[in-house]
């Protein structure tokens, strides 16, 4: 099977710090200073109340909310939504889990994936 290499993250001024922390293996969410909710994907402005937000580390554990496998690619891959513990639900890919083990409700944990330029993208693997 062809090894799938994830394309490099797109870095913007709003999220540059996320990618710097990712290089050090730290997974960050944005939390609102007004309503204290965390959200995904990270924004400088809280989507729930338009308040200001700050970075906050998350342990990166959660459960699969939904999943699929793209079967017809040169390198078939699994991806889906992960509901983070006490946090938002985020899109990501699944690595190191046999496709036939994937199921909704499965425990998963963060596993950083290398990308084409050496930057790290959050992926999830079996918990």
């Amino acid at each position: 099977m062809t090894q799938r290499i994830i394309s490099a993250p797109i870095v913007t001024p709003e999220t540059e710090h996320f990618w710097q922390a990712a290089q050090q293996g730290r997974f960050l969410l944005r939390r609102c200073t007004a309503c204290h909710e965390t959200h995904w994907y990270p924004r400088a402005i809280c989507p729930f109340c338009l308040g200001d937000t700050v970075w906050q580390e998350h342990p990166g554990a959660g459960t699969i909310y939904s999943w699929t496998v793209m079967r017809r690619e040169a390198a078939p891959f699994a991806m889906g939504y992960v509901a983070l513990d006490d946090g938002p639900t985020m899109l990501a890919d699944f690595t190191g889990i046999e496709f036939d083990r994937l199921k909704i409700g499965m425990r998963v944990k963060l596993a950083w994936s290398d990308t084409v330029n050496g930057a790290k993208m959050p992926s999830f693997t079996g918990g």
Binding site: I6, Y41, M70, E73, F77, M79, L91, M121
Partner: peptide
């Protein structure tokens, strides 16, 4: 704004 958080994972219409 959503591109960095979806495209690297191979989001497409089908999946």
């Amino acid at each position: 704004p959503e591109a960095p958080w979806e495209w690297p994972y191979g989001i497409a219409t089908l999946n």
